[in-house]
Write a protein that binds this DNA or RNA. Sequence first.
RNA 1: GCUGGGUUCGUAUAACGGUUAGUACUCAAGAUUCUCAAUCUUGCAAUAGGAGUUCGAUUCUCCUACCCAGUACCA
Length: 600
Amino acid sequence: MISSEKMERKTRVRFAPSPTGPLHMGGVRTALYNYLYAKQHGGDFIIRIEDTDSHRFVPGAEAYIIEALSWCGIIPDEGVDPASGKVVEEPSERHPHAPYRQSQRKGLYREYAERLVENGWAYYAFDSAEELQRRREEAEAAGRNFIYDRTTRRELRNSLTLGKEETERLLAETSDWTIRFKMPENTVVKMDDLIRGHIEVNTDTLDDKVLWKRADELPTYHLANIVDDHLMEITEVIRGEEWLPSLPLHYLLYRAFGWTDTMPRFAHLPLLLKPDGKGKLSKRDGDRLGFPVFPLRWVNADGEVSRGFREDGYFPEAFVNMLAFLGWNPGGERELFGIDELAGIFSLDRVIKSGARFNAEKARWFNKEYLRMKSVEELTDLFIPVLESKGLHVSDGGQERHDDGQGRNDGGVRGGHVFARGYVEKAVALVKERVSFVKDIWTVAPYLFIAPSEFAEFGVKAGAAVNDKPADPNRVPDPRAKKYDDEATAPFLAKDVEKFWQPENYAPAFMVAEYISGEDLGGGTETFYDGEMDSESLGHAIEQYIKDHGWPMGKVMNCMRLALTGASSGLGIADIVSFIGKKETAARLSFIGERLGRQF
RNA sequence: GCUGGGUUCGUAUAACGGUUAGUACUCAAGAUUCUCAAUCUUGCAAUAGGAGUUCGAUUCUCCUACCCAGUACCA
């Protein structure tokens, strides 16, 4: 039985990119599914470079592809040397089919093409590219289209029409002929796709594809692909849906070579579509909508830059997880899987048939989830370079903030700040739950490292006073009304600093700061908080202090927040104060006082 | 045009021919809070249309519409 023989073959799949540019995320997903399938079946994942188009070769593309896969954790078993990261050129035990670059295998394809001519499955064609182009244009002008097929081949210049002698002469004397596949007439090709099921196509709708070109002595995709898949003992071909229309040709090619008993099984993956509108995902969409479509940053020959998921701050695990779920899912409700877990549960029959739209929001969500799973230590390692890029430095030991006092209120980028690693770790732990990317640790709370020198408009999202949205007439008042409903909140949420920053609002904030720090900020200190500076007990003390004086909690706290962070939102006051310390707290209050003016 | 493939909330998807058509993201509301996040709760929102098979169709068949791909000496 053919089927039982097939079952005994070791699973071998391949990813065969063409180095014509950077690999886009759809390509990465194809590679990923191949990799997962191989691992799932205890087989091999092979890389083969299909560089048979000498005109479209792009320097650096091949290295980019390998690096991108490596970043994703997609490690080939064969075709790429793990140590050097280079495509293997010499055969070895691990890489028996080298070279893995089709341009370096070019000598081997001609004989296969000629074998097909000998057994009647192909023929020599002498029509020049220009002439065929001319015919195409003529046909188009007449409202039809020209196809090199079973009817037109009879009136074109090829070994079928020219006779043996003329053919031999042209073969010897000219050098721009090709070998074309002789598509059988009126034959139904019955095919099976692992994802799409049974498909049938009549050969009369197909054309005579070029298999081999004398001009550059290179095969086209179709020939090289079939020959190499056969030679490399590929068991499953998992590729993009754009190849589905040429599947009958490929079936026929296996038949023509007499390789049907070892023909791989095929699976055609759905395409990745634009997040909006029509068509498949393209480089342009990323530029237009503000997300990467490539795994890694890429700069083309014209210096045009395309952003990459890696450079945008995505974790490879998150990227891979997100990609795996674009067109496939394991059926349960869990969504977070590492690449090894994915390999354990992946199956082609759960691949979706229709195209999937990439969703940048969901990608961000995946990253956030992975970020939250990471340890503070690991995140700190990743965050330190961000700090460095702001001109801030981190020393190895200690917990405390080393501050030479030189950098205050200068925007923080003048240099001179050195933070102990432990201090950075504490900061990371504080904001970890609030960010999606490592770089956001800075964005969300720069005030943990530098004193604010500018103060944002004191606008807060909630509240009628700052909300321009018309009230919903259909809104039914909730009987469990929120403590701060719009009307009650408004006075606390003045739109701008000038309006909000009034003595009756800020004076208590200064008193609190004095209370905490023990420093006289000009308001007349009364008592000192001398408890532990952990945020919880500090929070209670502040709250009690404000209540004892009958001050409005929200107002006072937000004044402090403005002074401490320069913003109207952020971490809890007690967290910030206990983090930056008494001295810094007093200094920041002092600074905003001078800056905005105040009278008690 | 032709050939092939596809069509479940906005998006990704789940559902042996029998479910109040589920989940996640997004969005909205509420709880919580010194603000913003986070968290929790709730909500909005879908089987493209039409025939047929069947006791019963998101699921099977056909037609229509729409979308995608291919239609190169590119892959």
